[in-house]
Amino acid sequence: MIRKSYVIKHWQLYAMLILPLAYFIVFKYFPIYGVTIAFKDFNVFKGITASEWVGLDVFRDIFSQKSFYVALRNTFMLNGLDLLFGFPAPIILAICLNELRLKAFKKLSQTLLYLPHFISWVIIGGIVYQVFATNYGIVNLLLEKIGLGPFPFLSDKLYWLATYTSVGIWQSVGWGSIIYLAAITGINKELYEAAEVDGASRLRKIWHITLPGIRTTIIVLLILKIGDMVDIGFDRPYIIGNVMVREYSDVLSTYIYRIGLQSGQFSIATAVGLFQAVVGLVFILSANYISKKTTDEGII
C-alpha cells in the first residue's frame, strides 16, 4: 500500500523514465530479433523471416576460418595491451594532477590533456602517419639527428603495437582521468591532515589514502573494461593499421566490417557479433564474481 502511494506521489519521475525505457526497447531490445540472422542463410532480398534456417552452419563456417582466429587473437592482444598500459595511465595521471599545487597550471594541463579525446580518429590517423613515417616523419628525423636509425613505427609488427598502444593512451588518458579526479575529491580531507600530523610523506599519503580512497572506482572501471575485452572499437585499429601489420591490426570489428558490410555476408557478420556479445557477457560476469569474492565489491 505504501509502495503504491509512493508511485502515485512521484508519478512525474516515472513518466520521465518512459523515454529512456523506450529508447532501450526500440534500439536495444527490439533489434535482438535480428540475431536470428546468424542462424539463417540470410538473403537480403527475402528478408529475415523468409530466409531459410541453417542451424549452426554459419558458426561452423566461422570457426573453420583462420582469419577469424587471427582477428580474435588480435582483439585480445590489443585489448590486453590497453588494459596493461592504458588502464593504469589515467589513474597515475589523476594522482599527479591532484598533487599539483598551482591551480592555474593544473587547470591548463587538464584541459590540454582532454583535448585529444575530441579529435576524430581519422584525423589522429593522419597525424600519426605524418609523425611516425619511416623516412620523413618528424620523430624519425629527430632520432636520426641524434644518431639512432629510423625505426619502422608503422610497418614493423612489434613497433606498431607500441605505436598503437601509446597513441591510444595519448588520446584517452586525459578524459579517463576525470572520473578518478572526481573520486579523489570525495576523499575526506581530514585523513590527509591526520597523516601529515603523523609525518607521512607525499608518497605515503598517496599509497595509504588516495589509492584506497578511489579503490571502488578503480574496481568498477576494471570490471567494465574486462567485460569489453572482446569488444573493440572500429576506428582505432582500422585507421592506425595498415597492410604491413594486418596480421596484428585485423580485429573482430574490422573483420565484421569487411565480411558484413563490404562483402555483404550478413549472416557471418551477425554470428561474429553474437559470439562477441556472449563472450563479453561471460567475461564481465566472471570478473564481477571474482571481484566480489576477493574484495566484496562488484557492479551487480
Binding site: 527475402k46 529475415i48 523471416t49
Partner: peptide, 17 residues
C-alpha cells in the same frame, strides 16, 4: 507510437518480396 513504429519496421523487412 512504439508499437506502430515496430510493426511498420518489420513489415518493410518482409514486404520486399
Amino acid at each position: 507510437a512504439l508499437l506502430v513504429g515496430c510493426s511498420s519496421n518489420s513489415s518493410t523487412g518482409t514486404g520486399s518480396n
